[in-house]
C-alpha cells in the first residue's frame, strides 16, 4: 500500500473516527465511567448559549478578518503596481509578515496594544480613545482581527499582485481611450477581471480565519474578556483540554469537520470551475 495512504489513515482517518466515536460518549467527572449517549452531546452543545455565542463570535471574526485582510491587500497591491521604482523592494517587504508564526504575530500586536505597556495603546489613549482590550470585548475583537488580518495580508497581496499583472494592459488602455478615468477603470475593468482571484481568496481567508487562528487567539486574548473572542476552534480546545469535557468537545470538533467539508465542497465547485473569462 502506498505510504501516503498509510499516513492519511493513521493521522487523519483514525483520529477523525475516534473523534466521531468520542462525540457520542459521556464520562463522569472523575473519568471512571464512560457511557454511550448517541447524539446527546450534540443536542447539549447546540442548545448551549455559550456555543451559540461562539458561533456568532466566529462569524464576526472570520468575516471581519477576511474583509480587512483582502481590502488592505488589494489597496497595497494596486499601489505597488503603480510604483515606478523599487517595485521589488516593496513586494519583498510586504510579503515578509507571512513568514511570521501566528503566535508571534499575536504577541507582536499584544505588546503594541497592551493597555499598560503598549506604545500604540499609549498613542490611542493620548488621542482620547479609552483603549482597553482587556476589559472591552469590542476592543479585544478589533485587536484580534487586526493581528489575524495583518498576517494574511501578505498572502492576499501576492495573489492580488499576480492577478493585477494578469489583467492585459491593452484593456486598460482601451478603457482610457473610451473615456474612463482611473477610478472608473479600476471598478469597471480591473476589479471584475480580478473576480476569480477575489473569490479564491475569500474562501482561503475564511478557512484561515476559522481554523488557523488558534495561535493568535491563544496569545492575544485567550478567548476573553469573558467569552467575547472565543471562536469555535478555541472553544473546542477550552472545553476539551482545559475543562476536560471530552465528549462535548469531540461533538464540537465533529461539527467543525462538517463545516470544513462544506467549505471544501464550495471551493471545488466554484473555485475550480470558476468565474473565469477569456
Amino acid at each position: 500500500m502506498a505510504p501516503q495512504l498509510a499516513i492519511t489513515l493513521v493521522f487523519f482517518y483514525w483520529p477523525a473516527g475516534q473523534a466521531l466515536y468520542q462525540s457520542m460518549l459521556r464520562q463522569d467527572p472523575f473519568g471512571l465511567r464512560t457511557r454511550f449517549v448517541w447524539f446527546a452531546n450534540f443536542r447539549k452543545v447546540l442548545a448551549d448559549p455559550a456555543y451559540l455565542n461562539s458561533i456568532k463570535v466566529t462569524v464576526v471574526f472570520s468575516l471581519a478578518t477576511a474583509i480587512v485582510a483582502m481590502c488592505v491587500a488589494l489597496l497595497l497591491a494596486v499601489m505597488a503596481e503603480k510604483a515606478v521604482r523599487g517595485k521589488g523592494l516593496y513586494r519583498t517587504l510586504l510579503i515578509w509578515p507571512y513568514a511570521v508564526a501566528p503566535a508571534i504575530a499575536g504577541m507582536l500586536w499584544l505588546f503594541l496594544f497592551n493597555p499598560s505597556i503598549g506604545s500604540l495603546a499609549y498613542l490611542l489613549r493620548s488621542l482620547g480613545i479609552a483603549w482597553d482590550p482587556l476589559l472591552n470585548g469590542t476592543h479585544a475583537m478589533i485587536l484580534l482581527v487586526s493581528a489575524a488580518a495583518w498576517k494574511q495580508i501578505s498572502y492576499n497581496f501576492l495573489f492580488f499582485v499576480a492577478g493585477l499583472q494578469a489583467v492585459p494592459k491593452t484593456l486598460i488602455e482601451a478603457a482610457a481611450m473610451d473615456g474612463a478615468g482611473e477610478t472608473k477603470r479600476f471598478w469597471t475593468i480591473v476589479f471584475p477581471l480580478l473576480a476569480p482571484t477575489t473569490f479564491f481568496l475569500l474562501v482561503v481567508n475564511t478557512v484561515y480565519a476559522l481554523f488557523d487562528t488558534f495561535g493568535i487567539v491563544h496569545a492575544v486574548t485567550g478567548g476573553g474578556p469573558g467569552k467575547a473572542t472565543e471562536t469555535l476552534v478555541y472553544k473546542v480546545y477550552n472545553d476539551g483540554f482545559v475543562n476536560l469535557i471530552l465528549g462535548e468537545s469531540a461533538a464540537q470538533s465533529v461539527i467543525l469537520m462538517a463545516i470544513v467539508i462544506a467549505l471544501t465542497a464550495i471551493q471545488f465547485r466554484y473555485v475550480e470551475r470558476k468565474v473565469h473569462y477569456g
Partner: peptide
C-alpha cells in the same frame, strides 16, 4: 482626446 483605437488583440472587455 476623443480618439478611438482598434488594438491588435482587439482588447475587448472579456466580462
Amino acid at each position: 482626446r476623443d480618439i478611438a483605437m482598434v488594438f491588435q488583440n482587439y482588447a475587448l472587455y472579456p466580462h
